[in-house]
Structure formats: C-alpha cells, structure tokens
Amino acid sequence: MSNTPIIEMENVSIRYGRGPEVLRNINLSLQRGSFHYLTGKSGAGKTSLLSMMYLAQKPSKGSVSVFGNNVNFANRNALAMFRRRIGVVFQDFRLLEHSSAFDNVALPLRVCGMDEREIRKRVTELLKWVEIDRSTSAITSTLSGGEKQRVAIARAVINRPDVLLADEPTGNVDNDIAPKLMKLFVELNKLGTTVVIATHNENLIKEFRYPTIHLKNHSLSIINPEDGDEYAEI
C-alpha cells in the first residue's frame, strides 16, 4: 500500500473541446513524499497537467489515479474528500475577492466542518507566518498581487495536505520572499507532503535542486539534477 503512487497517470491525453491534444499519452507516477518542479514554455500544458491532478478536469483519454483511486470511477463525494487532501496554489489565485484574507484561508477548514475556534488559531498563526497579519480582515480585492499570492499559498497549506500543487507560485512575489515561500514548501515536503511546483524561476531551480517534469511537444520527460547539462538548459 505504501508503494502505491500518490498520483498516477496512465496514457493520459487532454484536449479542450474539439481543439488539438495539449498533452498526449502522458505516463507519470509520483511517489509519496517526492518533490518535483514542472517546467515548459508558456502554453506547454503545465496548468492542464496540474488541473487533472487537483481534479478540476478529467482526462480526455487515459486514467488518473489519486491515492490509489481511479478518479474516473469516483463519485462526487469521494472527489470532494480527495480534494481536501490536495492543496493547490492556482496560477490565477482563485481567491474569493469579496471575502477577507482570513476567510479565504479559513475556507478549506470550514468546508470540512472544523471547529471555529481551532480555525481562528490556525489561520491567524499561518497568516502571521506569510506576513499578512497586518491585513487579515481586509477584503481580498484590496490586497496587492504579492499579498494575494501569499494568501493563496496559505490557503493551499492550511489543511496540511498530502499533496501540494503550486502553479507558478512565486511569479508575483518579490524576489526576497520567494526563497522564504520555497522553504515552506521544502519544510512541508520534509514532513511527508508530495510537492509539484510549476515555475519559470531559474534561481529557485538552481538553489533548491529537485527533479523536473519537463513538458515539450505535448509529452513529458523527467530530468534529474544529476543530469547536468539538460538540467541547466531548462
């Protein structure tokens, strides 16, 4: 059971409507506790690949399994239970713009019915850590891009997920906070969370060395840091 991949894709293809296949015949198996970057040019399909992992879309072909369950055969409530174990930082944040930073971060805990006192404790603590404590009750739409991104990251990790998927999470933050957020991901990974981070940030890739899932020409290849040249090429 412990050898079962946390996320597994078999012969997965995805297309939008009648358009061409964005990804073709993808095979990927992520082990529990692994850490991967996800790279590829803009439009290569990074968001598409992640969205199948966080169960926003089903593949047009092939099968996706999370925690050993084929999502094609899971019912709606089962999907909800899987999603609770997957923290996501969306490329476009997807925050509730009219709610406060606090309520946004509290959301994953509220949907699973956690006690409100416990929620206040956890959320306050985490917001302090991502340096949003000054404006916790501010309406999200009034926050800066960098602040929104940190709220989005806090929301993704608040429920101590088994899997953390981050879609270009350091794109909008200042360069000095990016390493701090990376350290958060690394810490979570050390505690057992499986992590996939889509990024263009070469500094990060060089500083924190982990294998990379590289998307090119609708297919996928895994590049390890030891591979030297190729790794540097990304």
């Binding site: 169960l55 909800a80 239970m81 999603r83 609770r84 969306f90 509730l96 959301l107 994953p108 949907v111």
Partner: peptide
C-alpha cells in the same frame, strides 16, 4: 466561479 473554488477546495 465561487462555486468552482468551493468545489476545488473540497466542499461537497
């Protein structure tokens, strides 16, 4: 949009 977010965060 909000409903999609709620779903993605695991709301039933």
């Amino acid at each position: 949009d909000i409903i999609e977010i709620l779903h993605l965060l695991g709301a039933k």
